[in-house]
Design a protein around this nucleic acid. Structure first.
Lengths: 137, 137
DNA sequence: TTGACTGCAAATGCTTTGCACCATT
DNA sequence: AATGGTGCAAAGCATTTGCAGTCAA
C-alpha cells in the first residue's frame, strides 16, 4: 500500500490529514523493517521535529484500529512493533539477532480455518510466530 | 506435570523450596485456566496471606526461564498470563468473551518445521494464536 | 467557525529492583 | 553459617490521558 493510498483511506474514514499523520504514514510506508513506536518517532522527527511521542502513539493506535497497520509484540520485547497491513503473512524471528523474516504458507492458512471451524469458531484474526536459530551449513 | 514433579525439577535446579514457591507451584498445577500474575497472586494469598506480588513476579519469571511454565501475551491484554508447560499446544481465543481454548494439530507442527527449515532456521519456539467469534448454529 | 488534532506533562499500570531481614540448606 | 529468597516500597518503562492551544475542513 502506497503512502497515497494510506492517505486516501484515512481521508475516506473522515480523518483530518495533518502534517504529523502525513509524516508517520510516509515513515510506515517506507519502512522495510518492523519499527517500534520509538523508532517511528525518531524517524518522524527527522521530517518534522515538532512531532510528539503522544501523537505517534495516538496515530499508530488509530491506524491499528482502522486495520491499516498491524501491531506486533514479539517474545522478550517489552515494546510493540508496527508494520503496514499489506499481504497476509507471518514472521520467523531469529532469536540470536532479532531479525524478522516474513513468510506465507497456503496450507497453514487452510489448516487455521479448519481448526477454528472444527472448534465452532469463525476465524477473525491470527498470530503465528516462529522463533529459531540460523542453521549452520 | 504434578506439583510434586514441579517441586522436584526446582530442587534439581538447585532452588530452595520455600513456602511461597510451594504455594505458587500448587496454584499453577491446579489452574485449569491461564491465570495472570495478579490472579496467581490472589489465589496464593488465600493459602498464605504473607506472599508478596514481587515474589509472584520473581517466581513466575524464574519458572519461565527454566521452561517449567509458559508466558503468554494475548492480543489486547496488557498483562501476561501463565500456564504450566505440559503437552505442546496452541490457543484459540474467543474475542467476545476472552475464553481460551487449547488445541493441537500434527499437520501444523510439521508445516512449522518445514517452513523454518526452508528458511534456513532451526525451530526453537513457536507461538500460534487464533482469534475468533463463536459460530451461530 | 469549530470540532478534531496536537504538544506537553502528568498520570497509569504492569513489572522490576534495592535493601534489610529471614529461612532453607 | 552462608547464601539465596522474601516483603516492602520505590523506581522503571512503555503507554495513555487531561488540558489548553492550534489547525484542517
Amino acid at each position: 500500500m502506497s503512502a497515497a493510498e494510506l492517505i486516501q483511506k484515512c481521508h475516506d474514514a473522515g480523518l483530518k490529514m495533518t502534517e504529523p499523520r502525513r509524516v508517520i504514514l510516509d515513515i510506515l510506508e517506507h519502512a522495510k523493517d518492523h519499527p517500534s513506536v520509538e523508532e517511528v518517532y525518531d524517524r518522524s522527527k527527522k521530517q518534522d521535529s515538532s512531532i510528539s511521542m503522544a501523537t505517534v502513539y495516538r496515530t499508530l493506535a488509530l491506524l491499528d484500529e482502522m486495520g491499516l497497520v498491524f501491531r506486533h509484540e514479539f517474545n522478550d520485547e517489552q515494546h510493540a512493533r508496527y508494520e503496514v497491513n499489506t499481504e497476509h503473512h507471518h514472521h520467523l524471528i531469529d532469536i540470536d539477532t532479532g531479525k524478522v523474516i516474513e513468510f506465507q504458507n497456503e496450507k497453514i492458512e487452510k489448516m487455521k480455518q479448519k481448526i477454528a471451524d472444527e472448534l465452532g469458531y469463525e476465524l477473525v484474526e491470527c498470530r503465528l510466530e516462529l522463533y529459531g536459530k540460523k542453521k549452520k551449513k
